[in-house]
Design a protein around this nucleic acid. Sequence first.
DNA 1: GAGTGGTCTAGACCACGAA
DNA 2: TCGTGGTCTAGACCACTCG
Lengths: 248, 248
Amino acid sequence: MSRRARNGRPRYLEIARILERDIVRGKYPVGGLLPTENELCKTFGVSRYTVREALRRLRDLDLVTRRQGSGTQVITRLPRSTYTQSFVSLADLLQYAKDTYLRLGPREKVTARGALARLLGASPGQQWLKYAGVRYSREPAVPICTTDVYIRPAFVGIEQRFGKQPGAIYVLIEEMYGEKIAEVVQHISAVSMPVAAARVLGVEPGSPALGIVRRYLSGSGQTIEASVSLHRADRFTYSMRIRRDGTH
Amino acid sequence: MSRRARNGRPRYLEIARILERDIVRGKYPVGGLLPTENELCKTFGVSRYTVREALRRLRDLDLVTRRQGSGTQVITRLPRSTYTQSFVSLADLLQYAKDTYLRLGPREKVTARGALARLLGASPGQQWLKYAGVRYSREPAVPICTTDVYIRPAFVGIEQRFGKQPGAIYVLIEEMYGEKIAEVVQHISAVSMPVAAARVLGVEPGSPALGIVRRYLSGSGQTIEASVSLHRADRFTYSMRIRRDGTH
DNA sequence: GAGTGGTCTAGACCACGAA
DNA sequence: TCGTGGTCTAGACCACTCG
């Protein structure tokens, strides 16, 4: 066999998805063990490297834990783990944006005042552009959250590239305008799902929602972009690892 | 050559640390490229796999970005994350623990099984100690969240110091037993406030709550301590900063 | 002692980016 | 076109866990 004619997707991602699906469907119960690496090699007809890359992904998604000597244990079955977001760095934010899809509505002009001005870190009266959107997971393509994106009018040009390439909005601004993001500040809270967002996401109004507000700041502390997201509580968990240092 | 007599540390971690140090020292300036994988293989006398594992680590630390065709670019000179971010974040955790007050209830013995075993990353049947508590802000002294703390029976001695000094539980374990926390994994989600917690916190059952589950891990990946907290949504927001150092 | 995942080698072809 | 990183194979030894 050997040389695989790849259909565009890396084999290890395919395998990761199959295993992910099987976990969600209950083929591998929570608390139980996945087949060993060796068995998976035979099952999928691939080398150990490929299997290990797939398992690495499952571990990064927090679906399994792995320990030498004892095996690969399933720790979560809930499909929301699929959308669990694990951030230690901006690179993770970017990866998350690539694994999902953000569909944005038409441009609106808004004036920063009151709570919005505070959110944007802008002077009251300043003009901003707003795009109401919904973020979907790629497969299955289900809505995860509503997202309102705010950018300064100067960056209106990135509109042309909305949806044309996956990735985070801030990358578009960096690429088109050379305005570098130095810092992201985010606030996470629990809120009651408002009626409008509930309808879009297909949940009951008033059900619990995870709200995330992000500000993307330039080196001088100016807000370049901001976003307000409301996540279905049952499909989203924010996970993070805090490492003390790099020595182990 | 071949078989390396390893001094205990994986070779790829050694290489990662050497490259990290060189970046910090300015040998590879921000914006510049690291040597190619091939060159690094020759330099260190290792296979490409080992070099790639080392580079993967640098990427996870946000020190470099990698793109096929163009190379490995240095994006940060400061080892942010290893020290800056995680240190800052752990410090934040500690600061939070100092600004508030955790009142713990009596010791209970619990057996890890099912969901609890998964939470603790423990084998089913293992014995743990549980303390149900409530965290208050110092002034005004109002309840912020309920917190269940889980520790291994070996660390029962820290009970004596509950409430005698402010700070996080994990610090007590580190000080009394010398068991160092290497990593904290946390999951943040929105949930409906359960009846019992609602009574303690003085809110309506079913109102939105921010749930935070934390596992404190030793260097070998063992869970030292775990906690489950439910926060009043109106009194708690989780805020964080993701910095990208060295952007020029 | 048997079997697990962790590390490592020495090859190979492929997709992409820049000259 | 050429060199980069991305994917992949088929081996190997090692450290750890558990019966």
